[in-house]
Simulated scan of single mutants.
Amino acid sequence: MPLTGTHIAYLHTCHRKLWLFANGIQMEHTSDIVAEGKLIADSTYLDRARKYTELAIEGIKIDFYDAKNKVVHEVKKSDKVEQAHFAQVKYYLAVLVRNGIDQPSAIIEYPKLKQREIIEWDNQYLADATLWELQVETIVKDESCPALVKKSICKSCSYYELCYVNE
């Protein structure tokens, strides 16, 4: 199974969400919150499509990649799950390095917050990526879905109704 940035982000957000997603139960298409995030990404930096390229490699898809400067641009709606955003982008950078791109970097942009985070390359990302791949594989190959762990972000999750149907 080729891993995507979504797998890595969900690994750092919720193992249950990761398992459901990886096992074909995808709820993002029903979520107004996900739709709003896509709208922000599609409407905020309109000149990006002309300046940068979309890059698909090893299962990941980077929407805005500045090949000249080796910079991944990632747009996010909110910083509520910032750790997951960082992990996703670090994973992208590790995949780029594994495929011969030297010293890539990334910018995570939060247009609604008027904030941006710069991620510089660190060799540790290669080891992190390998560990995360193993963790994802272990979780998604388990025959049973991980137990519900109540978190503050649950109410804004596209899987909320599925997870809390009996409550």
Rank of each mutant, 00 (worst) to 15 (best):
S105A: 10
K77H: 15
I60T: 03
I8M: 10
L3I: 13
V136A: 03
E120R: 10
L18W: 03
D102A: 07
H15C: 02
L55W: 03
N69K: 12
V165D: 13
L46T: 15
K141W: 05
Q88F: 14
E117Y: 12
R116H: 14
A67W: 01
I40N: 01
K17T: 09
L148Y: 11
Y159V: 01
V89H: 00
F86Y: 09
L39M: 10
M27H: 12
L20V: 06
I40M: 05
S156E: 10
D63M: 01
W132S: 02
L96H: 08
C145E: 06
L131I: 13
H29L: 09
Y52G: 03
T138D: 08
V97C: 09
K17G: 01
I107A: 05
E117R: 13
G100T: 11
S158R: 01
K90L: 02
I62Y: 00
H73K: 01
D79R: 15
A94C: 11
K38L: 07
A84R: 04
S158T: 04
H29F: 13
L39P: 00
K80Q: 10
V140N: 00
H15F: 07
F86P: 00
V72H: 12
S78H: 13
E161H: 08
V165W: 05
G100A: 13
H7Y: 04
S78E: 13
N99D: 08
D128F: 02
K17R: 12
E143A: 10
K68R: 09
V136L: 08
A9T: 01
N23K: 09
G59P: 00
I57A: 08
I62L: 10
V72G: 15
K70F: 05
K150A: 07
D32F: 12
Y164R: 05
S152K: 15
S78W: 15
W121D: 03
H85W: 07
K80A: 08
L55R: 07
A106V: 04
A41D: 13
T44F: 04
Q115C: 11
Y160V: 12
A94W: 01
S144A: 02
I57T: 03
E137K: 10
T4H: 11
N99A: 03
N69M: 04
Y159H: 05
V81T: 13
L162R: 11
L39V: 01
L96N: 10
E120I: 03
K151Q: 12
V89K: 00
G100K: 14
D47W: 07
Q135S: 14
K51Q: 14
I139Y: 07
D32R: 04
Y110T: 10
S156G: 01
I62W: 03
I108P: 04
K68T: 07
K80G: 06
I57M: 14
F86M: 11
I107C: 04
T13V: 00
